[in-house]
Simulated assay, not measured.
Amino acid sequence: MTTPHTGPGDAAPQPLPAAPGADQHPALALVNTRTLRPTGAFDDLADPPAALDWLVTTGLLPARRSGLTAAETGRLRTLRECVRDLFTARLAGEAPDRTALAELNGALAAAPFTGRLHWDAAGEGPRLESRPAGGTPLDAALTRLASDAAELLSGPQAEAIAACAAGDCIRYFLRTHGARQWCSQRCGDRVRAARHYARTRAAENS
C-alpha cells in the first residue's frame, strides 16, 4: 500500500473542488487526499504538517493540537489506502483484501466512543454527546474516519459510491443521480473536450 506523494518542498497545486459527498463524509474526503494532477501524483498528507492541517481543517483534531509525528502521519495514510481498497472492492462486488478490512476494524477499536448525557437546565436542556472512551486524539480521529467509512459502506448510500470516470482522475464521490459519471465539472469538461478533439481529428483524417 505504498503511496507516491509529493515531498515537503514541492509546491501545492490549486485545491480541487470537493467531490459530491465529501463534505458529509470525512472518510470520502480522506480517500480523495491522494490525487493525480497534470504535474503528477499529489498527496495532501505528504508530511506531518500537511496531515495535521488536513485533520484540523476537517475538524477531526482541535486547532491547538501539537504537531504529528511521522509514525502518526503514516497511520493516517495507511487508513486512507485501506478505505480506498474497500471502496474499490465494493464497486467491483468482490471481497476486500483482508489486511484492509483488519486495518479498518483496528481503527474502529482505537478509541471507542461512548455516550454522555449532558443537561443544561438554563439552556438547551438534555443532549447526548459521544466522546472517546480512551486513546489519543489521533486515535479518536482515526476511529471517526473508520466509523464513517464503515457506515458509508454498509448503509443506504453504499450504492451511490462511485469512482470518477475521467481516465486521469482517481477520486471517489457519491453519485447524486444515476447518470453522473464525474467527481466534478472540471473532470466532465476535460472528458468532453477530449472527446470533441478526438472526433475532430477523426473527421480530419477520414
Rank of each mutant, 00 (worst) to 15 (best):
P112I: 01
W119R: 07
G106L: 05
A121D: 11
E124M: 05
E94F: 03
L108K: 05
G115I: 05
E103D: 14
A109S: 12
A110K: 10
A100L: 08
G106H: 08
L108S: 04
R116P: 00
D120C: 01
A92R: 14
E103T: 15
R98H: 12
A100I: 07
R98F: 04
T99P: 00
P112G: 00
T99G: 13
L108E: 02
A95L: 03
T99N: 07
G106R: 10
G115P: 09
R90L: 07
G93K: 04
P126W: 05
P96M: 10
G123V: 05
P96Q: 10
A122N: 09
R90T: 06
A122S: 13
P126V: 06
P112N: 00
G106Y: 01
P126A: 14
L91W: 04
L101Y: 06
A110Y: 09
R116L: 12
P126N: 07
G125I: 11
R90V: 00
G125E: 10
F113P: 03
A121F: 12
T114I: 13
A109Q: 12
A121Y: 11
G123I: 04
A107V: 07
G125Y: 09
D97L: 11
P112C: 01
E94G: 02
A111R: 06
R98T: 14
L104K: 03
L101P: 05
D97T: 10
H118D: 13
R90Q: 09
G125F: 09
A122C: 05
N105P: 05
R98G: 10
G115Y: 07
G123T: 13
L108R: 13
F113N: 04
A100N: 07
G125Q: 11
A107S: 15
G115C: 04
T114M: 08
P126E: 06
G93D: 03
R98M: 10
P96V: 07
R98L: 14
A100W: 03
D97R: 15
P126T: 08
A92T: 05
G125T: 10
L117T: 04
G123D: 15
A92D: 15
E124Q: 12
P96K: 09
G123L: 11
A102P: 01
A122P: 01
